[in-house]
Design a protein around this nucleic acid. Structure first.
Lengths: 252, 252
DNA sequence: CCGGAAGAGAGTTCTAGAACACTGAGGTTC
DNA sequence: GAACCTCAGTGTTCTAGAACTCTCTTCCGG
């Protein structure tokens, strides 16, 4: 009875929070809200749409899932940078798969230490922000030349065990599997093009600002629990991604 | 608040709904809840976890996002078949690179002109150096914002036909297929990280020197003859490659 | 100059319902 | 028998807060 019947047309039957999301989507699409801009705070938005905070948050949920906005605790809600993810399943050869190409591949362990997770790491590993994680820094060398810089992060319970192993000798996945019984079954990797920072450049032996690939990978075990977060930098002049595409059914 | 680990800042602060999701995840992972089984109804579950319906639903939200459960209005909440998400990903076609993601994709033709092939183009298309090719320059817009700059080169016999079509309206592959009977069946693509040049940057509306992906693609017809050479620039802040990896046999 | 304390602003989690909407089953009517 | 009705069971949307956490800035004391 509480006047939910009052939506003009009965056929519409679209939840409020969908309509609110739609309205915001519009504002973003039209440029009225530019990329990077901060939205009004949630309470204000809720008031302006005449709904509860909870309802408004459901709308934001939808937008976040579509990567249209980013919410940052304590800071605000922002229009996301217009970047687009898409799955490339045909991708065959890639970063880690350098072996089997004849070159001699070596790994140098630069350091291990416990630290608090940064935002991306925490999210990827489903930890609370500032949770303690073990960080590993490794340099991959191909024929003696630095090829990629890899930073790995493990949740501290796992890290506690891992740090006791001799990572200079044993590959990380072997330590996980044989010492901890953790088997990585799948992973999700995201690659973007970035500018090398000073530190990364130094370790890789090139100049800061050089273009590079940055790959972020989350590895999961069979139950879907995230085990490792990897961030790899590869200077653009040292690496290429090659893939074969096949257009079977239709279209090109 | 059973904070086992963590020091100083105490980390155990995990929201109820995360813990509930975790508990359910466990029941599913352990087989206590088999695939296809129906869970208790939401109100009952909420009571059994000692939380509100809203809170319980947040937990289910998490699980649904991971494809661990399916909710069906009027029917109930079910443990999902364990392979669903992979199947869906496998079925996704490569499509027109970006379409099918909800965004509005448009193409603007910047220009067409005949020129002599540069070395890379000539090699890729198996032409003699300095052979004449048709060059097309196109800007891809996603939701009105420039996304990528694409330069395509076609051997001049094909180019002669193509240039007569209205490329501003008809996708290139359609022109090839329906006007020339040429069907692209596969392609080879190489992606590298580069710095944007001045011209590219201008067309894409960003600063020269910005890191970007450069993709070079050769497309072939069924007989293996190279038909098109594409070079695409995509600013690094606008694009990401994402892929799923599956480690069937072993190793990470 | 450094480091901690305090506070403002913003997002997050949770409560205790109430009303609504979808599905399938069983009965009723034609 | 087919079409319709009704109802129980279940998921969905929404309210009106209250309490909590996180981030950043500013200010104060050493």
């Amino acid at each position: 009875m509480n006047g939910v019947r009052m939506d003009g047309k009965l056929g519409a039957r679209v939840p409020r929070y969908h309509r609110i999301a739609e309205a915001l989507r519009e504002r973003i699409g039209s440029g009225q809200l530019a990329a990077g801009a901060r939205l009004d705070n949630q309470r204000k938005l809720a008031r302006s749409f005449g709904v509860t905070l909870m309802t408004l948050r459901q709308a934001l949920e939808l937008l976040e899932r579509d990567h249209l906005i980013t919410r940052r605790h304590g800071l605000g809600t922002f229009v996301a940078a217009p970047s687009i993810d898409y799955d490339i399943l045909q991708l065959r050869r890639f970063a880690g798969d350098l072996s089997g190409k004849g070159e001699h591949v070596a790994t140098r362990l630069l350091g291990t230490r416990f630290a608090t997770a940064d935002r991306r790491v925490a999210v990827a590993l489903r930890l609370s922000p500032n949770a303690r994680v073990l960080g590993l820094e490794r340099l991959r060398l191909v024929d003696g030349h630095p090829m990629s810089l890899q930073r790995s992060f493990l949740p501290s319970p796992i890290g506690d065990e891992v740090v006791r192993a001799d990572l200079a000798l044993t590959p990380l996945h072997q330590v996980l599997e044989f010492k901890l019984g953790v088997v990585i079954t799948h992973a999700r990797e995201t690659v973007s093009a970035v500018r090398l920072g000073r530190r990364e450049a130094r370790d890789l032996g090139c100049r800061a600002g050089e273009p590079a690939f940055e790959s972020e990978r989350v590895s999961f075990n069979a139950t879907g629990a995230p085990i490792v977060f990897d961030r790899v930098f590869i200077p653009g002049d040292r690496f290429r991604i090659t893939r074969e595409l096949h257009y079977e059914g239709a279209s090109a």
